[in-house]
Nucleic acid binder design. Structure first.
Length: 592
RNA sequence: GCCCCUGUAGCUCAACGGAUAGAGCAGCAGUUUGCGGAACUGUAGAUAUCAGUUCAAUUCUGAUCAGGGGCACCA
């Protein structure tokens, strides 16, 4: 709640949850009153050397009134702007610039954060609909590569973003546990595998994958193997006992290994319904598509032709009657709408499936499912190696396990150099995990996910500068200051410094501006399915904080008001970093 | 061949059509009896090319060049 003292108020903009929102709304309202201008007004941050905090460009207003922007700015600056948040209004060329009164604005921002704590930046009303986030989706019997990290990490962050804006999110790990490749997999196990050895193996998924690769190699020499594979898949679909048993073994062995990775990453799912879950629905889906006017027959296959929309042709049923990936995804989407009550699905899947998802959404709409209209494909760019696209078959791949292991090892090194006390403490491995995984996640979440990545060890595990450890470190320092002072967030939320004579330092003011911008960043990030907007904000908070506490000792002075105001700022910073990193699925360690 | 995405500093990335295009790494020069330097301060360095729209273009449109992805019985 704003604690601002009453003054001569021209227009009430203190009655908003976030001071920055109230400030902007108020300014826009006043300009509308003064000029009669009804169009969009955008408030931008003023350049550092302008001596102002925010400004508006008056060209569009001037244009509407047939006047000169400079004189519009000038005349507006003469109007009444008395308000507790505004220190000064002035015109600079075509700009109308505002300087904030940080004694009131800053205190309201900081107090808002301290009182809202984990809810700062979270929508209070939980009335938006149910969203299924389709994420991670590893394939059974295949080792997870670094590429799988992207779907998992981005999916987790996108889930958090939707939750933050009041959606009811279901994280669904849509595991690839069905399809013709399992026929080949089973055939390979039958021919060359040893079940007992697989059960005992330290790396059963790798063993399974090698069997599968062997099948491909042999099939090139002996094409009849392909038929064998198809037969086994047919048996699997028909419920043959042995086929089922071997399939189940593959699933169990794989999930055990995947769960270990998810635990390290700190990612949880609400449900993990693999493709096999929808298997029984496939015949009716195919029938439904067949009856629909959008489908046709081509070369014996059931297809939907979307060439008129530049989307090519999608196969729903192969000419031999079997299902394909599309069939299973249709069933999945229908189930999500009808049985799970979802109004939207967000598919966090690679860029290479862009056309595919456009087709999926179109077909769903054609069949009358609303979820097809509302769903999004949140795609991410491919991970390549310097030599070219990652390819399991060509042996050109980075295993997720190896990246995690390397990250943990590097962080152990860092700690042994920088903090021997921590290195020898019981907390070490927990901190190692938090920081190394943080660094790894940051690499995926701090940039626009749509860009493709050329894998680079040092970049993937960067721990300095623009990185998770940098931000984590700032939070750890902030917490250390609070601990030193013997206070926690609640203590400092209660008391207020006397008078308006606080937050006069420019580094305090820059920090406050970034803290105030956080809720907007989270909202925008959700709207654009882009976690990097949060990462950028939280990095800026950390950066401003570092510069602030380096130059302004919080606890050293004697002025109680100053100490209190700065402690509040430190507490607010710690809270915002915690919230922001939380959205990204990154933890703040106790020590570093 | 057709469709989609991306071209910003030596490298990796930012910038709701708006002010002097911001960071990190690498480079150079500094800061430590400090609320721990995973930090801070300074310095140098960029919008692929050519047109167009606009009062205003890194941002929108078109073309060219370059890279990535996709284009029916795989997922």
């Amino acid at each position: 709640m704003p604690i601002t003292k009453e003054r001569e108020i021209g227009y009430d903009f203190t009655n908003e949850r976030y001071p920055i929102v109230g400030f902007e709304k108020g300014i826009k309202g006043l300009i509308k009153n003064y000029t009669g201008y009804n169009g969009e007004i955008t408030i931008t941050e003023a350049p550092a050397n302008s001596g102002s905090d925010f400004g508006i460009q008056t060209s569009s207003i001037a244009r509407a009134k047939g006047e000169n922007p400079v004189s519009v700015a000038q005349s507006l600056s003469q109007k009444g702007w008395s308000h507790p948040y505004i220190d000064e209004v002035r015109s600079q060329g075509p700009y109308l610039n505002f300087r904030l009164e940080y004694g009131t604005f800053g205190l309201d921002v900081v107090n808002g954060i301290l009182s809202e704590e984990a809810n700062y930046g979270m929508e209070r009303k939980k009335e938006k609909g149910r969203v299924i986030v389709d994420m991670s989706s590893p394939n059974i019997a295949k080792r997870m590569s670094y590429g799988h990290l992207r779907s998992t990490i981005i999916g987790d962050a996108v889930s958090n973003l939707y939750i933050s804006q009041g959606y009811d999110v279901v994280r669904d790990n849509h595991i690839g546990d069905w399809g013709t490749q399992f026929g080949k997999q089973i055939a390979a196990i039958k021919m060359w595998g040893d079940e007992k050895e697989l059960m005992r193996s330290s790396e059963p998924v790798g063993d399974l994958q090698e069997l599968y690769q062997k099948f491909h190699q042999e099939a090139e020499k002996h094409p009849e193997l392909e038929d064998l594979g198809r037969q086994w898949f047919l048996k699997l679909e028909q419920g043959d006992k042995e086929a089922r048993r071997l399939w189940k073994m593959c699933v169990d062995l794989s999930m055990k290994e995947f769960d270990r990775v998810y635990k390290t990453l700190g990612v949880r799912f609400d449900v993990a319904m693999g493709e096999s879950f929808y298997e029984k629905m496939l015949p009716s889906v195919m029938k439904q598509v067949d009856r629909s006017p959008i489908s046709s027959r081509s070369e014996g296959a059931l297809v939907v032709d979307m060439k008129d929309r530049n989307l090519g042709v999608a196969i729903i049923q192969k000419s031999d009657g079997a299902s394909v990936y599309m069939t299973r995804d249709l069933a999945t989407a229908m189930y999500r709408e009808k049985k799970m009550g979802a109004e939207k699905a967000v598919y966090v899947v690679g860029e290479d499936q862009k056309l595919y998802f456009q087709q999926l959404f179109q077909i769903l709409q054609g069949l009358g499912y609303e979820i097809g209209e509302k769903s999004d494909h949140v795609y991410f760019g491919m991970v390549r190696m310097e030599e070219g696209k990652m390819s399991t078959r060509k042996g050109r791949t980075i295993l997720l396990d190896d990246v995690i292991k390397e990250g943990l090892e590097r962080e152990r090194q860092v700690i042994s150099n920088r903090n021997p006390k921590l290195f020898n403490s019981r907390k070490r491995e927990e901190v190692v995990r938090q920081v190394a995984i943080g660094a790894l996640k940051w690499n995926d979440l701090s940039r626009d996910p749509r860009r493709s990545i050329v894998f680079d060890w040092d970049e993937a595990l960067n721990m300095e500068g623009f990185s998770a450890p940098y931000v984590q470190y700032a939070a750890v320092r902030a917490n250390a200051i609070l601990e030193h002072a013997g206070v926690n967030h609640r203590h400092i939320a209660q008391d207020n410094p006397e008078g308006d004579d606080v937050y006069k330092e420019s580094s305090e003011q820059s920090l406050i501006k970034k803290l105030a911008a956080y809720p907007k960043a989270v909202k925008l990030a959700q709207e654009q399915n882009n976690p990097s907007i949060v990462a950028t904000n939280v990095y800026e908070v950390a950066k401003e904080f570092n510069s602030f506490y380096r130059n302004n000792p919080v606890l050293r002075g004697t002025d109680k008001n100053l100490i209190l105001s700065r402690l509040k700022l430190v507490g607010a910073t710690s809270q915002v970093i915690k919230n922001g990193l939380g959205i990204l699925g990154i933890e703040v360690p106790d020590v570093m």
